[in-house]
Simulated scan of single mutants.
Amino acid sequence: MSARDRLLALLTEEPADVTGPWLDLVRGRPGSRGRIQDAWESTSGAGGYDGLLALGDQVEAYVPALVGGGNLRAFYRVDDRLGLVGGETVLDLACGPGTLTRRLARAVGRDGLVIGVDLSEPMLTRAARSTAFAQVDFVRADAMDLPFHDAAVDAVSCSLCLHLVPDLVTTLTEITRVLRPAGAAAFAVPAHAPGPLRPFTEMFARWGQARLFGPGDLAGALRDLGWSGVSERSLGGIRVVDASAPV
């Protein structure tokens, strides 16, 4: 069975067109989600983001731990954080240009399935073009209204997404719904800078119309929804949170 056929079986609705490089399950264009999300909706913004992620992906193995290499590896190696062994169905939410999607595909192998989801058409176009794995497919969807059946996936990777959603609890509730009980999730969210630098990050968040996360913000929201095994660490400007869905 192809990745497309396996994906279609997990969806709660049938797309109008099933022949393209990705399936579109967003009706029209959503209203603006803020300046940062608007940039990701543009071809130039998607290209710049792709280049930045690609650079980190190429160098993370070589950066010494003393200068942040461990933190960089924690962000990129979501397959290790999820404990993937092969054969899993994984949702890569806010997949962007597919940088982490490709790592997840290698981890699940040909018996697995990786579903890259993003709201940005330019991001999905780049991801589909650069991800030549038979076990991968892509969907355009809203993180607050995921078009999947309950408990459809075994694991979720959600990096640099939650700061852009209008309603955090709605998004986390949707992730909880589509993830199987006790399934693993690996999150990464942008964080406030510490001490005297915090006013600058607050100013940037207001300008970009995005949310930045303080210590315990995301971890606490997950615990409130019944998640367990919640761990959090700071990677400088990024907070990494790993957790298991409610049983």
Results as ranks from 00 to 15, higher is better:
156 V>G: 02
164 L>T: 11
230 V>S: 00
49 Y>T: 11
108 V>E: 00
138 F>I: 10
70 G>E: 11
161 C>L: 15
5 D>E: 15
213 F>S: 11
246 P>E: 08
116 G>I: 09
35 R>E: 04
63 V>G: 05
137 D>Y: 13
73 R>Y: 04
94 A>S: 13
204 F>K: 14
82 L>G: 02
16 A>K: 14
102 R>L: 04
86 G>W: 00
142 D>I: 02
34 G>E: 00
99 T>M: 09
77 R>L: 12
84 L>H: 08
139 V>W: 07
3 A>D: 06
10 L>Y: 02
162 L>Q: 07
151 A>W: 08
148 F>W: 00
152 A>Y: 05
174 E>M: 08
190 P>A: 14
217 D>R: 09
24 D>F: 10
240 V>N: 00
192 H>K: 07
77 R>Q: 15
202 E>R: 15
205 A>E: 01
2 S>G: 09
103 R>N: 10
16 A>Y: 10
100 L>W: 13
124 L>E: 01
159 S>R: 15
197 L>F: 10
75 F>V: 12
232 E>V: 11
114 V>M: 03
8 L>N: 05
18 V>E: 14
164 L>Y: 05
163 H>M: 13
136 V>C: 06
13 E>P: 01
188 A>K: 07
228 S>V: 15
197 L>Y: 03
121 E>L: 12
105 A>D: 05
98 G>M: 05
218 L>I: 10
54 A>N: 12
66 L>N: 10
109 G>M: 01
142 D>F: 01
15 P>G: 05
152 A>M: 07
117 V>G: 02
168 L>W: 04
152 A>E: 01
56 G>Y: 03
121 E>D: 14
2 S>Y: 00
179 L>S: 02
181 P>Y: 04
230 V>F: 00
187 F>A: 04
191 A>W: 04
120 S>Y: 05
225 L>I: 06
